[in-house]
Design a protein around this nucleic acid. Structure first.
Length: 430
RNA sequence: GACCCUGUCGUCUAGCCUGGUCUAGGACAAGAGCUUUUCAAGCUCUCGACACGGGUUCAAAUCCCGUCAGGGUCACCA
């Protein structure tokens, strides 16, 4: 039975790299019919915070990863101590006293060649004579990472350790500890790192790093997952849009790339739009409601959900991020549109009293306020006035929405309604 | 510095294992155009890469060696 684990340290939010590691662990476990174990590595009691644990669990769930088991290292200190004592007894480890009289347990590194078989990178060889003795139990009684990690992976029967590249050099130290403790050594697979646009590690300086930041910006979890999936893995047939369920069937850890990948938000934006286009408006509306309430665009719970759904349908295909809806569609919620200064200057800096009042009158006279009849009356008007369609269409759009961009004008008018459309037009009539 | 990992368009990648079908394919971005009521989408086209050097071979992006470059690790952090 395949058992993998994702082992975040709650000293910060779940970041992009962690999300990707979780993704590959989860994918592997699902594709193998195995178990996905979550282990919170909270041995550093100074830096570990409950709020980060909550944030990590929430982000993991948002991404859709359900764990089969969860453990906290802070609850297992006694286990680490027991194994340290075993090592002390066998002579594999020794005690070191600090000047203050505190005791730490140190592992004596035996000198030898260590070979590890990495599922992604193949054989890697290390010379342990280059590694200095390792602290197992710190003088405050807590275990070090390399020690707790080995004991947990062994006791939790982890069969495959899938983690970031940055752990390659920890691997020989851990292998030695496995051997000293008489544990079975699991399989290793080291994933390439995700880099920022500057070539270095993904950092806050080069963009958002937390999974939750992307959620808050309006990225769909499906899109983020798909994007992360394609960072260092490809199905091989040039397809890019791959849902997580399909990925489970296609995934093969041996086909994961070895090269570090740069996180490119432009492609993420494109992918997000692809998912947004095909997303269920009901689902999008659910996510939008809190944002619209926060902005004051939606009052209580008595808003017209059907109307909101119509607006979502109007915008979803043209949004890079879901949250853009709040700004792009603001004119449907505000008393008066917020005018883009440039748009106003370009299209409304002229006297359109005649055209606007005539159009307002036509709208007034419409008994059927459907999109088609609105368009018909508009086109009839410009024909009679003998002007180009676009000469009037742009000013009208700016007058109604405050913007030069947006959905088709006749749909905008339809959903704005007769009264609001007329009022906004008439404001420009002298 | 030592050790380890990696090197295909600006970016993500296919191809590499099992040399020839690769004058290197796709996607994002960029540029041009079509459509048109703007934006987005869609469609068409353009730009653009095998890090370098040597070797093996009839033949190398693919195998070998070296160089260079980038990254990672060297904590009583994880």
């Amino acid at each position: 039975m395949v058992r993998v684990r994702f082992a975040p340290s709650p000293t910060g939010n779940l970041h992009i790299g962690g999300g990707r590691t979780a993704l590959f662990n989860w994918l592997f476990s699902q594709s193998q019919g195995g178990k996905f174990v979550l282990r919170i590595e909270d041995t550093d009691q100074e830096r570990s915070k409950k709020e980060f644990v909550d944030e990590i669990l929430y982000s993991l769930q948002w991404l859709g990863f359900n764990w089969d088991e969860i453990y906290y290292q802070s609850q297992r200190f006694a286990r680490y101590r027991e194994h340290a004592d075993r090592l002390l007894k066998s002579g594999a480890a020794y005690i070191e006293r600090s000047p203050e009289g505190k005791e730490a347990v140190i592992y004596k590194i035996p000198h030898k060649k260590i070979q590890i078989k990495d599922l992604i990178r193949g054989e890697i060889e290390f010379d342990s004579s280059l590694i200095k003795d390792q602290v197992l139990i710190k003088s405050d009684g807590t275990p070090t990472y390399n020690f707790a990690c080995v004991i947990d992976d062994a006791e939790m029967n982890i069969t495959h350790i899938i983690r970031g590249d940055d752990h390659i050099s920890n691997t020989p130290k851990q292998v030695l500890i496995y051997e000293a403790l008489g544990f079975i050594i699991p399989q290793f697979a080291h994933l390439p790192l995700i880099m920022g646009v500057d070539g270095g590690r993904l950092s806050k300086r080069t963009g958002a790093t937390a999974i939750s930041d992307y959620r808050k910006m309006g990225y769909l979890s499906e899109a983020l997952l798909n994007y992360l999936l394609l960072l260092s893995w490809a199905p091989g047939d040039n397809r890019e849009l791959i849902g997580i369920k399909e990925a489970v069937g296609l995934f093969d850890i041996k086909h994961v790339n070895k090269t570090a990948a740069t996180f490119d938000i432009k492609k993420l934006d494109w992918m997000n739009n692809q998912y947004l286009k095909n997303a269920d408006p009901e689902k999008l509306a659910d996510e939008l409601v809190p944002l619209l309430k926060e902005k004051g665009y939606l009052g209580g719970d008595d808003f017209d959900r059907g109307y909101l759904l119509d607006l979502v349908r109007l915008f979803q295909a043209r949004l890079p991020r879901l949250n853009d809806f709040v700004d792009w569609a603001d004119f449907f919620f505000l008393e008066d549109p917020v005018f883009d200064p440039k748009a106003k200057e370009k299209y409304l800096n002229q006297d359109l009293s005649k055209e606007f009042s005539l159009f307002a009158q036509r709208l007034q006279d419409l008994s059927d306020f459907g999109v088609a009849s609105i368009e018909e009356s508009f086109r009839g008007l410009v024909a009679e006035l003998g002007i180009e369609t676009k000469k009037l269409i742009h000013p009208v759009r700016v007058a109604l929405t405050g913007k030069t961009i947006g959905p088709g004008l006749f749909e905008v008018i339809h959903y704005l309604g007769k009264e609001r459309s007329r009022r906004r037009l008439l404001q420009w009539v002298k």
